[in-house]
Amino acid sequence: MAKDSRWGLDSGNVRPSGVQQEYWFSLKLRVDSAAQLWQAAALRCLSQAELSQDEVEDLIGPLEDPSIADCLMVLALPERLPGCSRLDTALHPVDTRAPAARAAREPSDMIDLG
């Protein structure tokens, strides 16, 4: 079964260790419960990073006003991926109004969007 997988297991696609490649990895999420997200991120910080409650709130905000982006980063990003160097990390909220707003603008106005 591994021979037919696309995971590179026993497929001959494994590159020599001296060859480096870069990849973009994208994950789109919808946050359904900010409180559950915060609780999971806080638990990760308290147990794995051994942070105090005050340090947790400095990192991800308080339960009443969580920093969603910081909570997602704490939970979604491993400390390290074996054999890899993290080159960049980006997290941006999706603006569902952006496509319609951009379509309604004149081409010369697009320069101001930067």
Rank of each mutant, 00 (worst) to 15 (best):
A69I: 08
L91N: 06
I68M: 01
D54A: 12
I60N: 00
I60R: 00
E106T: 15
V56Q: 00
F25Y: 10
L51M: 13
A42E: 03
W7L: 11
A103D: 13
A34S: 06
E79R: 12
V31Q: 06
P99I: 03
L59S: 05
E55C: 08
E79V: 06
Q20L: 11
A41N: 03
V74A: 01
Q53N: 11
W24T: 03
N13G: 14
K28S: 02
M73H: 08
P62N: 11
S108A: 15
T96C: 14
L81Q: 07
R80C: 08
C71Y: 00
G12C: 02
C84W: 05
D95V: 04
E50K: 14
R105Q: 15
R44D: 06
E57Q: 03
E57N: 04
D58A: 12
R97C: 13
D54I: 05
D58Q: 13
E55H: 06
L27R: 05
P66G: 00
M73I: 11
V31T: 05
E79T: 09
A101V: 10
L46Q: 07
P62W: 10
L43N: 09
A76N: 06
L91A: 08
K3G: 05
L51H: 07
N13P: 06
E55K: 10
M110V: 09
G12S: 02
Q21E: 13
P107Y: 11
D109T: 03
D65M: 09
E106W: 15
A104F: 04
L46I: 06
S17P: 11
A49C: 02
V14E: 09
E106I: 10
L37I: 02
A103K: 14
C45G: 02
S5C: 15
